[in-house]
Amino acid sequence: MRIVVENVDKKFVDNNKREVTALENINFTINEEEIVVLVGPSGCGKSTLLNIVGGLLSPTNGQVYFEGTNDIEPNLGIVFQEIALFPWRTVFENVIYGLEERGVPKKEREEKGKYYIDMVGLTGFENAYPKQLSGGMKQRAGIARALCIEPHLLLMDEPFSALDAQTRTIMQEELLTIWNRTRLSTLYVTHNIQEAVYLGDRVIVLSRHPGKIKSIINIDLPKIGRDSEQYRDQFEKYADEIWGLIRHDAQEALKEA
């Protein structure tokens, strides 16, 4: 099953009643088992694009669709930047929320909940409320909640941007381990170039005003172990290339704020 983003435009009307083009002519596909990373400076519309793909915003023009579904109703799992765990539900209750809403029997909910809680390393915290957890552990629960519905596409909107640098590094590694077990097609949004190169099969670089695809870069490195010594030069080359594409826009974004 592939996800196709076709001719997507998004226009907003801003506070001064002027029309602003947030996204223009966006075309790309996400293949099975592929991690596509959207990267760009702030204000390039990357979160807007992810929201459109996630069905939380309608595009002005164009469409997003699953191809080759064989009449299965495709599922989407979203990991939010704000984490968005329900504060009144325990970790377990949060993780199985999607299953509950789909009417999955209790026994299966318990098995799957346990399985994915174990996968993200939260065993022993099933009955904790979100406020009792650290930022990194909260986002693990957020990831488990998205995995638990076994989605056909996993959307991640800057999931680690609120975490400290050390936690983020660990979470990136863990995410790859999880991907290795689940092989989910993933659309990942970030402003962090290192993260983009570390995780992505393809990195889509967006420009701003309007948000357009500036370049799509294939990362020809093995999925696991890109941070090891032998790939350091190539890794840096990719990162430099992307930074070269973004730098000017990022400086412009800084002036506006």
């Binding site: 996630g54 069905g55 939380l56 989407l76 799992g77 979203i78 939010f80 704000e82 968005a84 329900f86 929320y97 999607g98 809403e101 789909r102 909640r145 519905i149």
Partner: peptide
Amino acid sequence: VDQTLIKAAVTFGSS
């Protein structure tokens, strides 16, 4: 109520 929580609920299939 936090809008993202509502979005999250809808995403995970809530009526």
